[in-house]
Nucleic acid binder design. Sequence first.
DNA 1: CGAAGTCTTGAAGAGCTTCAATACGCGTGG
DNA 2: CCACGCGTATTGAAGCTCTTCAAGACTTCG
Lengths: 248, 248
Amino acid sequence: MTATAPTDNPLDALFVRLQQHDKLGDAERAALSAALGPVETLPKGADLVREGDNPGSSTLLLEGLACRYRTLSDGRRQIVALHLPGDFVDLHAFVLKEMDHAVGAITTCRIARAPHPALERITEDHPHLTRLLWLLTLIDAAIMREWAVGLGRRTAVEHMAHLLCELDLRLRAIGQQHDDRLYFPVTQSDLGDMLGISPVHTNRVLQELRSRQLIHWEGDFIELLDRKALAEMADFGDLYLHLVRRPR
Amino acid sequence: MTATAPTDNPLDALFVRLQQHDKLGDAERAALSAALGPVETLPKGADLVREGDNPGSSTLLLEGLACRYRTLSDGRRQIVALHLPGDFVDLHAFVLKEMDHAVGAITTCRIARAPHPALERITEDHPHLTRLLWLLTLIDAAIMREWAVGLGRRTAVEHMAHLLCELDLRLRAIGQQHDDRLYFPVTQSDLGDMLGISPVHTNRVLQELRSRQLIHWEGDFIELLDRKALAEMADFGDLYLHLVRRPR
DNA sequence: CGAAGTCTTGAAGAGCTTCAATACGCGTGG
DNA sequence: CCACGCGTATTGAAGCTCTTCAAGACTTCG
């Protein structure tokens, strides 16, 4: 007979995430555990979901980095969201039914899937948990709004600084800090697709931040050398991340 | 004793909107009616909600145009969403609790408010209706994603064409078509704040579309002279509007 | 009729893209 | 072990898109 230590639960990423925003009851944890299937591993570069898909389940990211993106017919690509462990990368498909964009794995990803009928049962039996799941999609939307502000009204340098400030807080919130450095294994080309700029300009923007002694980029790690200066440059405010614990 | 004709119900805008996406039961209509307060009128230019507010109710737009926007500390403004009759402009605040951006009335608006405790009761008693409300916020998010793609990866002319195609479909869907022309009473400055460009460039983009015989702008009305050409120019696809009626 | 807001136009310049070439890093096979 | 190849990063130069500033025309309304 084997005992399962609660700290080893693969779903901890989700529980940690939800508890940033509100209390989570035991029955709610149990309902989530019951809704989620076995852990699977997806290789770097794989598509978790494709545009036009009608997925029968939604994907919880347990480990790794994933992004949502849309590609125009001539190949121009815009990344519209970045997902960290504990995020439901396509929870919206539970209600929308059809995917209007794709989700790709930036690194190797460990995931678990929640079949939509199981999620539907949660909405029938657990109103408060339903609101928490709704909350997750609303925070995704709030982050998207801030990205839109960056795309529309921030310069590339400001936008980059903003992205780094956001990433710093989001990674901290889920306890993913490696010696005060952010593990962020993306190419400059990916980064450009998030900021809506070309790879070449992405490179120049990074050089600008480096020469101002604001960041130190080494391999897959970014060190933020001056968070305050970055935040000021980006006009960064953390309100939109809704990292406040309160009844929902 | 006065009888109320169902077609004169001010909430019809909402019912029409919801029925684009799924069937709506009588009990659900009743629950919504019970949740919504009296009709109010707000003058053009008024803020419905401000950044940082903790609104105790969410606002349903019955008539008029409203937009969500965020302003950077130096005054740069980005409009992140445009709302038409039948939209809940700040339904997300029901779960998020705190507003991370403002909502303004572009024209005079008729609205009705749903107190959050009343919405909470809906989530307790009406799971399917809850999913439909969730759906409304998810479609807002889907539209935002497409706006982000436009902001990041479309040229100004393409982006403008895309916005017009979207507006055309959204207005059609709620039956707001005036002689095949769109009633869209915004200034070029507002339009620039939606597209993330300057007022001067907005003007030049409009001239480009006019000179190509794609639109005819007269007063507060826009006529789309060649929908097909506009859609092609914008790489427009309507998938993201999720205008399909199916069980949710 | 005057005032305020909006639209339009021109001209200079900033920010970003594109093309093209070079350098670097890493894993693979000889 | 080294050479090669491939993806990524870096740099320069030319050019396009969009911004900014400034002025004038048009509209609307009290």
